[in-house]
């Protein structure tokens, strides 16, 4: 008995030690180093966008907002923002319409070929986008869709639809199938079950999937880069071209454009974080952690 108490005390002491161990300190120092660099990156863009001139000093020699005007006009940012939103919203809506029903089937039914179907939804996410993007772009150009808004939307749907399926399948799995069975017992038709029973239950999952796809589509570079034409570039792609052709325009204008892009993502992110947890953005699992 006494031995057990001693052991318990030792375990407790160890727990207490763990709170202040050098290991913890090292990890926190490393984490803070990472955060400092991250803020350094973001702050350099921000500082540069407001700079009159910034060469070999800690901070720019003067401050101005004129480069925002330059960026807005030179990069036709109003049009680019509209295109970005058109692409992102269409991709979200279409990928939900196509992906959610497929997720229902994968969550509820066991059938021959299910593994193959699952694999066909996994592959577009696992393979680098540039590898299927080049043949896809070639095909889209052959169909005269390359460079058009529809072509950009189709290309962006390729990773979005599988993503919706992979997010929604575990979400639907956790809804008790007995609820559907009970509704059927009460005489509900199949479409009634979908509209009146499942519909309200999956709305949180649909919302989460929609926001995750929105964040991804706005940030997705490769596929838009491969399929977009002059009038159909999204914000990321025109930022890339601006950096790529730097020297033509002042670097402050490029930074100003980057800040506008950051603000766009930030707005979407703030909205998204109201409904989904940060861990959900990568793990696709509903996070029940208690914090």
């Amino acid at each position: 008995m006494t031995q057990l108490v001693v052991r318990e005390r030792r375990a407790e002491r160890q727990k207490g030690e763990r709170r202040k161990s050098p290991f913890r300190w090292l990890v926190w120092v490393a984490a803070i180093f990472f955060f400092l660099n991250l803020f350094g990156v973001i702050a350099s863009v921000l500082a540069n966008s407001f700079a009159t001139e910034w060469f070999d000093t800690w901070l720019p020699s003067g401050w101005t907002t004129k480069y925002y005007q330059t960026a807005w006009q030179d990069f036709q940012l109003a049009d680019t923002l509209i295109v970005t939103m058109q692409v992102a919203v269409t991709v979200v809506v279409v990928s939900l319409i196509i992906g959610a029903p497929a997720a229902y089937v994968l969550a509820r039914r066991e059938f021959p070929g299910k593994k193959a179907l699952m694999l066909s939804f996994l592959l577009p996410i696992m393979v680098p986008p540039i590898t299927y993007g080049i043949p896809l772009a070639t095909l889209l150009y052959k169909l005269h869709l390359g460079g058009t808004l529809n072509g950009v939307i189709l290309a962006n749907l390729v990773p979005a639809v599988p993503f919706v399926v992979l997010v929604m399948t575990p979400f639907i799995e956790q809804i008790d199938p007995k609820i559907e069975a009970a509704a059927r017992m009460c005489g509900a038709k199949t479409w009634q079950i979908f509209t009146r029973i499942l519909g309200p239950l999956v709305i949180p999952g649909l919302l989460a999937a929609a926001l995750l796809v929105l964040v991804q589509t706005v940030a997705l570079f490769e596929l838009t880069f491969l399929t977009a034409g002059p009038g159909t570039q999204t914000l990321v792609v025109s930022l890339y071209y601006a950096v790529f052709a730097s020297g033509i325009r002042p670097s402050q204008a490029i930074s100003a454009m980057a800040v506008i892009y950051m603000l766009t993502t930030l707005v979407i992110l703030v909205i998204a974080l109201r409904y989904v947890s940060p861990t959900q953005m990568v793990t696709q699992i509903k996070d029940n952690s208690d914090d």
């Binding site: 039914r109 021959p112 066909s120 939804f121 639809v161």
Partner: peptide, 28 residues
């Protein structure tokens, strides 16, 4: 064997992947 009318719900998703991922991949 699990193949009832509900399976049709997965058909759009499957056709989509075939048309825009598998077909381009084979084409490539």
């Amino acid at each position: 064997r699990g193949l009832d009318r509900i399976i049709w719900l997965a058909v759009p998703g499957f056709l989509f992947v075939v048309a825009l991922f598998i077909y381009p991949a084979i084409f490539g």
